[in-house]
Design a protein around this nucleic acid. Structure first.
Lengths: 180, 180
DNA sequence: AAGCTATTACCGAACGACCGGTAATACAAC
DNA sequence: GTTGTATTACCGGTCGTTCGGTAATAGCTT
């Protein structure tokens, strides 16, 4: 099995169950491998699995944020990145690994990685807002607001079973970041 | 030990560790009792502990939301409820039990209770917005927006280690709900 | 191409530790 | 002395982890 597909499957387990909730049995079942086989790929055990998954998530976000980073048309870039964000979260049906994999019990390295991904994500959104003319302070505030709305709407969608809140936040992402 | 203090201590463990992460050892240590002693109060075990905690949380929110429900001065009521919300979350330092106790692995009854508390919370905020003159649809949207911002800012504060995002959301709660 | 070796990928079985949960018992209050 | 509360001791099961071993693959020598 390719590393990429393995990460894809493991992150699905981690994001839904959290670190402590993701048992080796659940991870192995999700990966389609036996428990012992996971230790061939990850000699460091469950901790290394979570760390590797976070590194994979970091790379995913680089790709997701690429349009809003580099598209000459800032608005179009934000729209496309929003589309990719919605895809990552399956339209609001899947929880955010930054939220679920960082409860107490998760290794400090994993929580640190989540913090760095969060910072990079907000930086990218702030840069887009700044490119659209916002002051540095306003751009950062708008980016934090966008992050807050995305994470919050994921929680609400999970609790209510209704994805419309998440969809609305995604639709309004250009307005949140670029004004209007 | 009083039931109220026991719930207070148990919820601190559950909210930080989640359901699966909150071992009986951690719960007993947090409660200041032996594991077996918890089974005297909760013959139904860990599931009943979580259910009882959710019921206690529901009652807490009734008290927290009381000002915005019944204060003749809607704005003053929202401000006071916002103050109580900030207190519940220790200024953004403590995660929301509605978020952390509802991952996969938590009993369905607990997740259902969390959904009901969420609905009641949003209903109370929508009622306040409506009392201030908003249309029913606008009031509900504003209330969902307020919930999304609170939950999202709790996630951001936890990830960044900086409580300012949560504090800003609380400060802006009257504006979010009542406009302006 | 064939044959040997080293490495990679995976699995079944088992370990010690800790999990959630139970029983029997001690102590206190009324 | 009965009731309610908390404790010590213990149970079966699952946890994360390790070990021994087996196919399959890659590389080197001839």
């Amino acid at each position: 099995m390719s590393d990429d597909e393995l990460f894809e499957r493991l992150v699905q387990v981690f994001r839904v169950y959290g670190f402590e909730g993701a048992s080796l049995g659940a991870l192995a079942e999700g990966a389609g491998l036996q428990r012992a086989s996971l230790y061939h790929r990850f000699p460091g055990g469950k901790v290394q699995m979570a760390e590797s998954v976070m590194e994979w998530v970091r790379r995913i976000f680089v790709d997701v944020l690429e349009p809003m980073r580099s598209d000459p048309d800032v608005h179009a870039g934000v729209v496309e990145s929003g589309r990719r964000i919605a895809e990552v979260y399956a339209g609001g049906a899947l929880p955010c690994v930054l939220n679920t994999l960082t409860l107490s019990g998760a290794p400090e390295s994993v929580r640190a990685a989540a913090g760095e991904i969060t910072a990079a994500w907000i930086d990218a959104m702030a840069a887009a807002a700044a490119r659209a003319g916002a002051s540095p302070e306003a751009a950062r505030t708008a980016a934090e607001e966008a992050f807050v709305r995305i994470e919050g709407s994921l929680v609400l969608s999970r609790l209510s079973g209704d994805m419309s809140a998440f969809q609305r936040v995604i639709d309004e992402l250009p307005g949140t970041l670029l004004g209007g």
